[in-house]
Design a protein around this nucleic acid. Structure first.
Lengths: 218, 218
DNA sequence: CCATCTTTTGAGAGTTACTGTCATTTGAGA
DNA sequence: TCTCAAATGACAGTAACTCTCAAAAGATGG
């Protein structure tokens, strides 16, 4: 179900930019941690596909990954985090901050998101798809999008605030972030619901066009 | 903390339209159920204000309301539901369906929400405020907005679908509902965060103006 | 290579939200 | 007053977390 083979636990660093950044001088300790984290995730997804998310206990996942339940919770704060947490926030923030400051924020988001996701799809298409499908199908996860360490609204809000060069976000910034986050999530869900056949870039373009138009036509 | 006195457990039906609708021919059984539900909520909020949400167990709430824990869960599916569930969905749907079909959906929502909330504030201001403050302050609740039986996105989506006279909602409808729900939630949170001093109608007007403009200026 | 320090891990006990079952109680209706 | 259906309580059980502490393993300096 996941792309990795058991014997190739670590994705190839030379072809994966996200991984590459984290790899430079990595101590043994840190390599092991990374590996443990990936093993836990991989085993979890395998069990999910065999028995469903709800019917898989943390204890089973820990056993399959050959760690103690204590250790599981050191790597993932909650069971939901297995699916909902990712490591893309820094990349998203960087991409957003590279856009010109005078550009409308919606445009910045559209451009940053489409190019990032396009790149991501080349290396982690299967995993992203599996995740998003889980999210669409498991109610608990669907609701949990908004929780989860990396809450997309908070992410957009961070960038908006920094771009404006202010300390505290304004109300308009909060509303904007909330709406964009909700719309983006919807785009990803739609992509997964459609079996990954639709172009996600087109989907995002379309979604942001809808936001820009003030929801014209609906 | 809550507006009701212990001796006036039931809000006055003659002045409260929402209550009035539910009151016409109410059997003893149904009256008791309503009363139990209100007692549980009232005692829960009292304990929350004394000990915080997290430090209050369902067992304590049940004891304070003089029901068994089993009964608690028959009235509220989860502890979160104590705060996040409400009974306004039918009223919101009705108000939305009364708007002209050719009106932009955003306009319909703005009008329906402002008038409904204005009315609601007259009778349940304190309770609404307490709730929204809890939601802003308790992370678990804040995330839970999107879960909870009455999910605002689903509500808007229902109306949109029915208005269009189709069976299945389109993607644009889903995005629109998601964005409106997120923005509306943000308005309510802002209202509570501001101590209830800002006019919530103004807040909602402002929020929808932002949506209509395609987030101009941010 | 060894000794020491720090980080990571596992074991285990405890809490709490929630589920399911079954017998008892209580209001509804004839 | 009798009968039926709905509501309740008691109880046992599950699983996701949390906390604490001692053992294991990597880092570091000699």
């Amino acid at each position: 179900m996941t792309p990795q083979q058991p014997t190739a636990a670590l994705p190839d660093a030379s072809t994966n930019p996200v991984q590459a950044k984290l790899e430079a001088p990595l101590s043994l300790r840190e390599r092991k941690k990374l590996k443990t984290r990936q093993t836990i995730r991989r085993e979890a997804y395998r069990l999910f596909s065999e028995q469903s998310y709800e019917n898989t206990t943390v204890e089973q996942i820990a056993a399959a990954a050959e760690v103690s339940p204590s250790t599981f919770f050191r790597y993932f704060a909650t069971k939901e985090d297995l699916v909902l947490s990712d490591e893309y926030d820094p990349a998203v923030i960087a991409a957003l901050l590279e856009r010109p400051t005078d550009e409308p924020f919606l445009t910045s988001c559209r451009e940053a998101m489409t190019s990032l996701i396009r790149e991501l799809l080349q290396h982690e298409r299967e995993e992203l798809f599996t995740r998003m499908r889980l999210v669409t199908e498991v109610p608990a996860l669907r609701a949990g999008i908004h929780r989860s360490g990396n809450n997309p609204q908070a992410l957009f809000l961070t960038v908006l605030t920094r771009r404006a060069g202010v300390e505290e976000p304004t109300y308009d910034m909060r509303v904007t972030s909330a709406a964009i986050a909700a719309a983006t999530a919807e785009a990803l869900l739609q992509w997964a619901a459609g079996g990954g056949r639709e172009s996600i870039a087109d989907l995002i373009d379309h979604t942001f066009a809808l936001l820009e138009s003030g929801f014209a036509g609906v």
